[in-house]
Design a protein around this nucleic acid. Structure first.
Lengths: 352, 352
DNA sequence: TGCTGTCCTTGGATCGATCAAGTCGGCATG
DNA sequence: CATGCCGACTTGATCGATCCAAGGACAGCA
C-alpha cells in the first residue's frame, strides 16, 4: 500500500504545521471507503447510504478536508469563476455604480458557488483580457457591464461562443443571442419627473448625455413622456452634454438664464452635481429655490447637503438576475432566457 | 501515433467552432518538437535556441494556445490568484477608498501575473471565507485591508501560516511577522492643518473618530502636532464621534457654538460632509466663511460644491508596494521585508 | 580519438479530483 | 432455478501541464 506516507492532514498532529492539505484519498482511507465514494459524498450525497455518508462526513471534518480546486477544475473543465472587467476609475465623477454592483454580484454569486475574478482593461486592446482568460479556461463566464454605444465585447464574445451575461441591454441589436439584465432608465426619469410634477413644478428641465448614447436617450424619453402626458412643452428645456460636473454646471447656467426652469432632472448624479454648483454660485438653495433630481443614487447623492434626490437602480436585484442567467447559461443543457428589465425607484432627499 | 484525433485547434478549420482548446501536445506536434520543449518555450525561453523558440512561438500563435490554468495550478500548487475580501458596502458615507484601491491592485497585480479574486465576508463568521479559499488552494495569498481595532484576520492568517499582505499597520503589535503597507495618517492631517495655518487660520477644530480607533488617533496626532508646533492651543477644539454624516453635522454645530473655529480638519470625508451640512443650514459658505478639509479624497470631495479639500492617499503606490510584498512572500525562498509607510498628499479645492 | 557541453528528445510519474465501466450481493420475476 | 435489475460501492483511466532522469545528436576543443 503506502500510497500516501507524507503525513498529511491538518489536525492529525496538533501543533504541527501541515505539509500538504489532505486529499480525497486521505479521507477515503480514514473512512474506509474508496475515493469515488468520498467524491460522491461531497457532490452527490444522495447516492450514499445514510450511515456511510455520516462516516465519510466525519472523516472530512476530522481532516479538515476541502476539495482541491485545481484538480476539480482540470477534470470538470470548469473553474467556477466569473470574470468581471473593471474599467479605469473615473475620477471627478459621481460614478459609484460599479462599486455597489460588484458587492451585490460577489455576494449573490457566492451563494451560487461562484467567485468573481477581476481583471483590468488593457488600454490598447480592450479584448485581450477576455481572450486570455477564455483560452486558458480561467473563467467559466463573463459579466459585462458597459453596453453603451454598441459594445464591441458583446459581439466578440458572441462570435467566440463565450458564455456571458450583460448588465445593460444590447442596444440596436434585433435578436440578441445572449442573456441580459437591465434597469428601465425611461421609467426612472419618468418617476423623477412625475414626482416633481406632483410637487407643483411646471417647467422641468432635462440635462442628459450626447445623442449617440442609447442609455441617455432612453432616460430622456421618460422625462419627455411625463411632461407630454400632462400636456406640458419640452422645447428649449433640454440640454445634451458630456457626463462631467463642469458640463452640468454650464448647461444648467444656460438653461436657468434662457428657459427659467424651476426644476432639473439629470441623466446622472454627476450632472446633477453640476447643477448644484451653479445654484451655489448664484446663492440659490437646492430644494427651496430650485429642485434637482439625479440618477444612480451614488454616495455623493446620499451625503451632499441637503441630500440629492436620485433615481436608484436595484443593483441587488440586478445581481440576482445576472447570476440566475449565468446558472442557466452554464447549466446542462445551457438555457438562454429572455432579457430582464427591472424597475428603478426614487430616493427622495432634500433637493426637491 | 493518433494521440489526438479530436480535431483540436482554434484556427485549424476556419469557421468551425473549436471543440476543445489546443493543448501543449498539439503545439508540440505542429512545431515538430517535444512537449517538454514547448513547456520550456513558455516557462524558460532562455533554454531554447533562438530559431527553435521562434518555431514554437509560431505554432503557439497559429493554434491560439494558452496553457490550461487548472492543469498548471494542479501541478505547481499555485493559482496565481490573490484573494481580496470586500466588506459590505457602506451606504450613506463617502467611503470610496476601496474602489480606487481595488482598481490599482488589479492593474498592478496583472503586471505581476496575478489576478484578483473577490470574496464576500460571511456575516456570522468573518474568517470562513478565508478558510475556505485557503484549504481548497484557490488563492496563493490574501490582501487584507481593514486593520483597525486589532483585526482578527491577521492573527488568524498568521497562525495558519497563510501568506498575506496588509494594507494598514498592525496596530498594537510589537513584532509583526507579516508585510504591511500603510499611509501616514498623522502626516496627512498635519499637512492639512499646516495648509490652513499658512492661510491665516488660528482656531482649527478637529473632528475625528472614537478613541479606540488607532487610525483615528493617528490622524488626530498630526493635527495637534501642527498646532502645538506653532504654539497654538488644542483644548476644546476636538471632537470624537462615529464616522457618519450626522455625527459630523452635530459635532461641527457644537464646536461652532462653543469654540468658534474658523476651520475644520476631519478624519474622513464623511465627517467633512457633515460639516458642510451644518454650514449650509446656517447660511455659511465653505471656503469663504469657514474652511473645511476632509480625508481620503473621495469622489464626494471631488464633486461637491465648491470642492472639498482632502488628504489623498497614494493608493496606486500602495498597490505597487503590496504587490511587491506579495512577490517577495511567494518567492523562493519567501522574503518578508519591512513595513512600508507612504506619505499622503493634499488635494486642494474650494473649501479652504 | 576522447572529452565536455549545449540543445533537445524520450518515456515516464505526478498533481487530485472525476468519469465510465465494472463488481457484488440481494431481491424480484418468469 | 436461471435471469435480470438495482442499489452501493470499487477500480482503472483520464483531464493537461510540469517535473524528473536518462540519453542521443552534434559541435568544439584538446
Amino acid at each position: 500500500m503506502a500510497e500516501h506516507d507524507r503525513g498529511c492532514g491538518v489536525s492529525r498532529i496538533p501543533g504541527r504545521v501541515p505539509t500538504t492539505p489532505p486529499t480525497l484519498a486521505d479521507v477515503a482511507e480514514l473512512a474506509g471507503v474508496s475515493r469515488q465514494t468520498v467524491s460522491n459524498a461531497v457532490n452527490n450525497p444522495d447516492l450514499l447510504r445514510a450511515d456511510t455518508l455520516e462516516r465519510v462526513q466525519e472523516a472530512i471534518d476530522e481532516l479538515g478536508y476541502s476539495p482541491n480546486r485545481a484538480a476539480r477544475n482540470l477534470r470538470t473543465r470548469a473553474s467556477h469563476l466569473i470574470g468581471l472587467r473593471i474599467n479605469p476609475a473615473q475620477e471627478g465623477t459621481a460614478n459609484a455604480l460599479m462599486d455597489r454592483f460588484v458587492h451585490s454580484l460577489v455576494e449573490t454569486s457566492r451563494e451560487a458557488g461562484y467567485h468573481v475574478l477581476l481583471f483590468a482593461a488593457d488600454h490598447e486592446d480592450p479584448l485581450s483580457g477576455y481572450d486570455d482568460l477564455l483560452r486558458s479556461t480561467a473563467v467559466d463566464a463573463f459579466v459585462i457591464t458597459d453596453t453603451y454605444l454598441g459594445n464591441p465585447q458583446a459581439a466578440w464574445l458572441e462570435s467566440r461562443r463565450a458564455p456571458f451575461v450583460a448588465f445593460g441591454r444590447p442596444w440596436g441589436v434585433d435578436e440578441p443571442r445572449h442573456p441580459w439584465v437591465d434597469v428601465d432608465g425611461a421609467a426612472g426619469s419618468e418617476l423623477a419627473t412625475n414626482h416633481l410634477l406632483d410637487r407643483g413644478h411646471h417647467r422641468i428641465a432635462w440635462i442628459g448625455w450626447r445623442k449617440d448614447s442609447w442609455i441617455g436617450e432612453d432616460r430622456r424619453a421618460g422625462w419627455s413622456r411625463a411632461l407630454r402626458a400632462r400636456g406640458l412643452p419640452t422645447t428649449g428645456l433640454a440640454s445634451r452634454v458630456e457626463d462631467t460636473v463642469a458640463s452640468g454646471r454650464e448647461a444648467s447656467a444656460v438653461l436657468l438664464d434662457e428657459a427659467h426652469p424651476s426644476a432639473f432632472v439629470c441623466a446622472s448624479d454627476t450632472l446633477a452635481m453640476g447643477v448644484l454648483h451653479t445654484l451655489a454660485e448664484r446663492g440659490l438653495v437646492p430644494g427651496r429655490d430650485v429642485a434637482v433630481v439625479g440618477f444612480d443614487d451614488s454616495q455623493v447623492a446620499q451625503v451632499v447637503p441637503p441630500g440629492l434626490t436620485s433615481v436608484r437602480q436595484p443593483l441587488e436585484e440586478v445581481a440576482v438576475e445576472v447570476v440566475k442567467a449565468l446558472e442557466g447559461l452554464l447549466g446542462h443543457p445551457p438555457y438562454v432566457g429572455p432579457g430582464v428589465l427591472l424597475a428603478p425607484t426614487l430616493a427622495i432627499r432634500g433637493s426637491c
